[in-house]
Amino acid sequence: MIAIFMLFLKIFAGAIFLALVVTLALLFDGADRIVHAKMQRRFGPPLLQPVYDILKLLGKENIVPRRASRFFFRAAPWMALVSTLMVFLYIPSGPFPAVLGTEGDMVLIVYLLAMSGLMMAVGGFASGNPIANIGAGREITLMMSYEFPLAIVICTMAWTAYRLGMPGAPFSLETFTAVSVWKAVGKTGTFGLLCLFLSLVMVIPGETGKGPMDIPEAKTEILDGLIIEYSGANLALFKVTFALRSFAMAAFMTSLFVPFSLAGLLGSGGLLVAVFDFLFFWVKVFAVQMVFVTLMRTAFGRLKIWQASRFYVLKAAGLSVAGMILLSIDVMIR
């Protein structure tokens, strides 16, 4: 009986939470566009522009190209959206635990993000357009490149948490939101963490497909690449997915490396404090997204795919391995 009640509670909480997440993701996307425009000395669109875009696209004709593989072409946006949305079921938000926190951990989050990336590539391949094919090929190449440093970062973090005896399961994100990993490690470890942090910063543009790594959707090269054939509701789903991916990476980064909360300042306990803490979490996510997505995409041009791949395989991976070694030393010497 209680199990069934808990199940319904989780479905209910999940539905509300995901609705909130989609709204916030679109709002953050709007803010991202405004801040991006301001940094370029432009006015920029209204805050709700992404919402207007989605609404407009939903009312548009949904064209499936004649040469497309219909099933995959239609399924890909849904799969991409659902797998990106599922990420949020495993990310704890401030004082509140993740909806499905006990059922999945960081490894699942990485897989879900990879899944949505893969689904975007599948959509590109299925559209039967050579340009979309190139875009999809780029997406896969990029993914293979940045997954390596990402995996090192996550495994090192989990191993550190395990060896330092941080409370909770080592791969669970809640372990890192409960206790700040910056405080748990020593001096060498701080440098190690910094390396991992920077390497995750490098991964973010690739994962979100923005900034110097907007290669699969390069507008001036391959005309929006893998989404070139999408229109109407399918395109709207992809737009939401893109907004959610930036948002998910920002939230993931925040949980892992920016776990500071207001609870210490306001005193613990009480619903009001929890609500403040909850809001503060999204403020942190916003700040992370502005700095590591918006600023990055304003500051840099676009790399070529082999340059991006080399950047991830050599520089980002090298940095994460350095972080791994430093953290290992830190754990060993204490």
Binding site: M39, Q40, R41, R42, P212, D214, A218, T220, G301, R302
Partner: peptide, 16 residues
Amino acid sequence: ACYTIGFDSAFHLGMQ
């Protein structure tokens, strides 16, 4: 040229 390499900020600066 900046726009073509995805460097939109420089593009807007140039246009301005």
